[in-house]
């Protein structure tokens, strides 16, 4: 097998693994959403149309005040714009393809794409991860919503810890040298510090400031 073939196989395998892990979490989203009072149709619509986990949890968590919850969800979604800026030169998606690619710009696909050394591997990683997560997340959501209260405590299976672990596995390949470590830890520290002070979802956005500071003021 060629080196490119091996890379390709690794990318597809990792994409599927990320999809399955996200699907398991999608089950808990579906169950939590229905438990919060959304209908099964609303729950599945969110996973199909919104398709960005953090925003979906933000909306569902604020069922008491739909307007504020919607604002928080969009605010959380702003980070996908930041990912898009990073991914655009690699993806070079034009026309209708860009509208399809846009829906797949999420934490998982962004992390998998920036982890690749070559642009063609990055594009494969983006589409494979995005589509695997989209399929599994929506299937998981439907399963969870239909299962309803049968899985009312996803914490019992440790699913809430599986998500940060997945993010850690995605972050690890980017941690070459002192600067990315400092930025990752700085982002974590900022987010934790402001969590009691600002609405849900905002702490992660505040962490973006660390990247802006490091990128504009750091050593060349």
């Amino acid at each position: 097998m060629t080196a490119a073939g091996a890379t390709r196989r690794t990318i597809l395998r990792d994409a599927l693994a990320i999809g399955l892990a996200t699907g398991a979490y999608g089950v808990s989203f579906g169950a939590i959403s229905v438990a919060a009072g959304l209908s099964t149709a609303q729950t599945c619509t969110l996973s199909l149309l919104m398709f960005t986990g953090g925003s979906q949890f933000a909306l569902v968590g604020g069922a008491a005040s739909p307007g504020a919850a919607a604002a928080a969800a969009v605010l959380l979604g702003v980070r996908n714009a930041l990912y898009g800026i990073r991914l655009a030169p690699t993806l070079r998606a034009r026309g209708l393809r860009r509208f399809a690619a846009a829906q797949l710009v999420i934490d998982e696909s962004a992390a998998m794409t920036v982890g690749q050394a070559r642009a063609d591997a990055g594009r494969l990683a983006f589409w494979a991860t995005g589509l695997a997560v989209f399929a599994c997340w929506n299937l998981g959501t439907l399963t969870g919503a239909l299962g309803g209260e049968a899985l009312d405590d996803p914490g019992r299976f440790g699913l809430d810890a599986a998500v940060p672990a997945a993010f850690l596995a995605l972050l690890a390949p980017t941690l070459h040298g002192r600067e990315p470590w400092a930025v990752a830890l700085g982002g974590a520290a900022v987010a934790i510090t402001v969590t009691p002070l600002v609405p849900a979802g905002v702490p992660v956005l505040c962490a973006a400031g660390v990247a802006v500071l490091a990128g504009t003021r750091g050593p060349r």
Binding site: L82, Y83, F167, E179, V183, A188, V204, A207, A211, A214
Partner: peptide, 9 residues
């Protein structure tokens, strides 16, 4: 650096 900071957060 953005994904690094956001993933950390």
């Amino acid at each position: 650096l953005l994904p690094v900071a956001l993933l950390g957060a």
